[in-house]
Design a protein around this nucleic acid. Structure first.
Lengths: 148, 148
DNA sequence: TCTGCACCCTGTAGTCCCTACAGGGTCAAG
DNA sequence: CTTGACCCTGTAGGGACTACAGGGTGCAGA
């Protein structure tokens, strides 16, 4: 009987989710609490599997928990126009593009940095040098300096 | 006298760091505690400015706090070869590249998703569909199902 | 039947990197 | 002397988990 009665471990396997994370989702009300067995084990049904799958995919796409909640609410009644979902995704796409750009700038920096270090001593290491001084060249010794 | 005696606010300005963050860095031992004035204000010297600058730049490049600690330690003795520094940066570059790839996959998904939802109703909205079911088509009704 | 062992339970605390208060003290100008 | 900008300490929060500690359950093998 009950061939889609899953233990928490099985549900985790099926969705690529850690057991603790599933319990966490239950605690914050993202995944409804399932029935319990006689021995007080959680017993998940097909609906849970679907919902957790949805949640995980949305999370993988980078949606925050609250955004996932929003998506789930929207998905729940299918008669409304999907402008809202659309907007959510569009916003998210924009944010993603900004992240990509930032990371690509970072990559360029790191590559550059790496190329300029050819195995000398740390004292001459350009990586450290790139991190160390104030950006503009300024040979201020101890003593006279303006406050700018 | 002491023309490079900075208050915490000035140090923050000079390095683009919030005051609370500076105090936090002190608490976790990343930035050494400075002298205090008679009125118990922190009084920073040029060395602090340098070190905090280093920290911030490294953080901007995405190094974790512990990695920054490592870099600082390495930078401190300049007679050793800079292989370790090199390795740290190379690892970081690799991690960055993985992140970029993941985000680009995400972007593709989102764009695709967006294109397929042009103001219909949610029932037909591919955005929701893309997240909802298991990938492979499977019309399992209630009743018979294998346990896979 | 007993003994392992893998799995499950609850609850709490920790991670990372700050950020935001609350409730005060200090300093320079007017 | 008062105002206001700055500074101090200490603690709590936040997002999304993750990791214990200290137990209970279920099942297979000897």
């Amino acid at each position: 009987m009950d061939m889609d009665a899953l233990t928490i471990g099985q549900l985790g396997q099926a969705t690529g989710t850690k057991v603790e994370t599933i319990r966490y989702y239950e605690k914050i009300g993202l995944l409804p609490a399932p029935r319990r067995t006689a021995g007080n084990y959680r017993s998940y049904a097909a609906g849970h599997l679907q919902r957790l799958g949805f949640i995980r995919r949305a999370r993988e796409l980078g949606f925050a928990i609250d955004e996932v909640r929003e998506l789930l609410k929207l998905a729940a009644h299918g008669e409304r126009p999907c402008e809202e979902v659309d907007q959510l995704v569009a916003d998210h796409l924009e944010a993603t593009e900004r992240k990509i750009e930032a990371l690509m700038r970072l990559r360029r920096e790191l590559r550059h940095t790496l190329k300029s270090c050819k195995g000398g001593r740390i004292a001459e290491c350009r990586i450290i040098q790139a991190l160390s001084p104030a950006p503009a060249a300024r040979k201020a010794g101890p003593g006279s300096s303006s406050h700018a």
